[in-house]
């Protein structure tokens, strides 16, 4: 068994708005093995970004983790004081964000922004930090780093800025890098470069990566394990091969079916009808039931648990439970699934 560096258990995060409580994350569990990459996949609104922000406790003011545990090397960091948390952020656990264009402070130079992590966590003086910043820029593949270090964000392209963000995140050799859709805002060619860079740096530095994305293609390329999220919950968790070879949750199947794949002999793309439920009007049963072609009354009434297959793969679907009332063979988005029981 691999060593687990981060273990998220039953995480619940809510936003308290004028219209009431929004349960953005509703009982999410997954673990991050040391040195591996776990992907968290889902549509926008599935709660995947909120999950990552909850880990570092960087939620907006009206957001709050209401339940669960986040164990970092066995310690529940949700119990940490704000000061202890600051010691982790940017030091042990770093984060990069979706929008490289707006995630850097426009009024400070690149060097100043990278140096800040170093002076804060490693007690370097400004000069040392600046020299290290140049090294870091070199590490993330920015040409003429001596020049770039004195430039302002507006002088850099989007891809360059994301590299700067990565340099900033890696400044203190973190054990975990949380990457929240780091390539979504970039051009396709730049995307590949940035993904390659993250992968490469992970191999060299031995850190774990939590990769938040809506793009299953990116998952296939970069991740070792995958948690698929839907409407604030994990619906399927498994290693990446199993997920692509034998997806089990109807939502995952639907996602894969709606994805054009040049390798498979795919007859047509099958869309998932309907929309993600409103956070104010969550279905009482399985959250995917309204859109699921195989949904039964049980699905609509009762929320299924995560069923473990004994090999570490989990799925939140009634089909795999003894109580399943539907037919033995179920057609889900054009694929057959054999029900249990």
């Amino acid at each position: 068994m691999e060593e687990t560096i981060l273990d998220v258990r039953g995480l619940r995060t809510s936003f308290f708005t004028d219209e009431g409580e929004v349960k953005a994350v509703d009982g999410v569990s997954f673990s991050v093995p040391k040195g591996k990459t776990i992907g968290i996949v889902g549509e926008s609104g599935s709660g995947k970004s909120i999950t990552s922000l909850s880990i570092l406790r960087l939620l907006a003011e009206n957001g709050k983790v209401v339940d669960g545990e986040v164990l970092f090397k066995g310690e529940n960091i949700l119990d940490y004081s704000e000061k202890q948390m600051r010691g982790l952020r940017g030091n042990k656990i770093s984060m990069i964000f979706q929008e490289p264009m707006t995630s850097l402070n426009p009024v400070f130079t690149v060097g100043q922004q990278i140096s800040e992590s170093l002076t804060t966590h490693q007690g370097m003086n400004k000069k040392q930090a600046m020299a290290k910043s140049v090294d870091l820029l070199k590490l993330v593949g920015i040409p003429s780093p001596e020049k770039r270090v004195t430039q302002y964000p507006y002088e850099l392209s989007g891809g360059m800025r994301q590299r700067v963000m990565i340099a900033m995140a890696l400044a203190c050799n973190p054990e975990i890098l949380v990457a929240d859709e780091p390539t979504t805002a970039l051009d396709v060619t730049i995307q590949a470069q940035i993904l390659g860079l993250i992968k490469d740096l992970q191999n060299r530095l031995g850190m774990s990566v939590i990769f938040i994305t809506h793009d299953l293609g990116v998952v296939a390329e970069t991740c070792d394990y995958v948690a698929v999220m839907y409407a604030g919950q994990v619906v399927e968790y498994s290693d990446v091969r199993t997920l692509f070879r034998r997806p089990r949750h109807p939502y995952t199947i639907g996602l894969l079916k709606s994805l054009p794949r040049p390798d498979a002999d795919q007859e047509k793309l099958v869309p998932i009808h309907g929309m993600v439920p409103s956070p104010f009007k969550m279905p009482t049963g399985c959250r995917f039931a309204p859109r699921c072609p195989a949904a039964t009354d049980l699905c609509r009434e009762k929320l299924p648990d995560l069923f473990d297959d004994g090999e570490g793969n989990q799925v939140r679907c009634w089909i795999y439970d003894e109580e399943w009332p539907g037919p033995k063979e179920v057609d889900v988005f054009g694929e057959e699934r054999i029900a249990k029981g």
Partner: peptide
């Protein structure tokens, strides 16, 4: 509420530095 303020917080900076250095100047 800007993204770069979240970035600054993600670096582990104190609220004081985030407010007076990163936010105020902008």
């Amino acid at each position: 509420n800007q993204d770069y303020i979240r970035t600054a917080r993600a670096k582990g900076l104190t609220d004081r530095i985030v407010t007076y250095r990163h936010a105020l100047k902008n």
